Amino acid sequence: MGVKLEVFRMILYLSFPVTMFWISNQAEYFEEYVVKRKREICPPERDAQKKELEAFQERMRRRREERLLAEAEKSKQM
């Protein structure tokens, strides 16, 4: 009885994690749970948001260029 019990326990201990891994890596489960959850947390960008972000990036780029230009002119004067 001791060997049979140990074999049964070993099969149980190994089959549970393997089964859980197999179930969690099914494509249907991934599509159903993970993708939908991601879309809830981070909805796709809208055109207005994208244009606003691009405008902000352009303003920041201009500020950085102006600052660098001012620093370059200041260093030339010294």
Rank of each mutant, 00 (worst) to 15 (best):
M1V: 06
M1K: 07
M1I: 01
V3F: 14
V3S: 04
K4A: 10
E6M: 06
V7S: 04
V7I: 15
F8C: 02
F8Y: 08
F8A: 14
R9M: 06
M10C: 06
M10R: 07
M10T: 07
I11L: 14
I11Q: 04
L14V: 02
L14W: 07
L14H: 04
S15P: 00
S15N: 08
P17N: 04
V18K: 06
V18R: 09
T19Q: 07
M20T: 12
M20V: 14
M20G: 05
F21Q: 02
F21T: 03
F21P: 00
I23N: 06
S24W: 07
S24K: 07
S24Y: 14
N25I: 03
Q26W: 13
A27V: 06
A27D: 10
A27S: 12
E28D: 11
E28R: 07
E28F: 13
Y29F: 15
F30L: 11
F30D: 05
F30C: 00
E32P: 00
Y33W: 12
V34K: 09
V35N: 06
V35P: 00
K36E: 12
K36Y: 06
K36S: 13
R37N: 11
R37W: 13
R39P: 00
R39S: 05
R39M: 11
R39L: 15
R39Y: 08
E40W: 10
I41R: 12
I41D: 00
I41V: 15
C42V: 13
C42S: 06
C42M: 11
P43D: 03
P44I: 03
P44V: 09
E45I: 09
R46A: 02
R46D: 03
D47A: 14
A48I: 09
Q49H: 04
K50N: 08
K50C: 02
K51D: 09
K51N: 12
L53C: 05
L53E: 13
E54K: 11
A55T: 07
A55P: 03
A55S: 14
F56Q: 11
F56N: 07
Q57M: 13
Q57N: 14
E58P: 01
E58M: 08
E58H: 11
E58Q: 14
R59Y: 01
M60S: 02
R62I: 15
R62C: 05
R64H: 05
E65M: 15
E65Q: 13
E65T: 03
E65P: 01
E66A: 07
R67H: 03
L68S: 02
A70M: 05
E71F: 09
E71H: 04
A72W: 10
E73R: 15
K74T: 02
K74A: 15
S75V: 05
S75I: 11
S75L: 14
K76G: 00
Q77A: 12
M78E: 14
M78F: 10
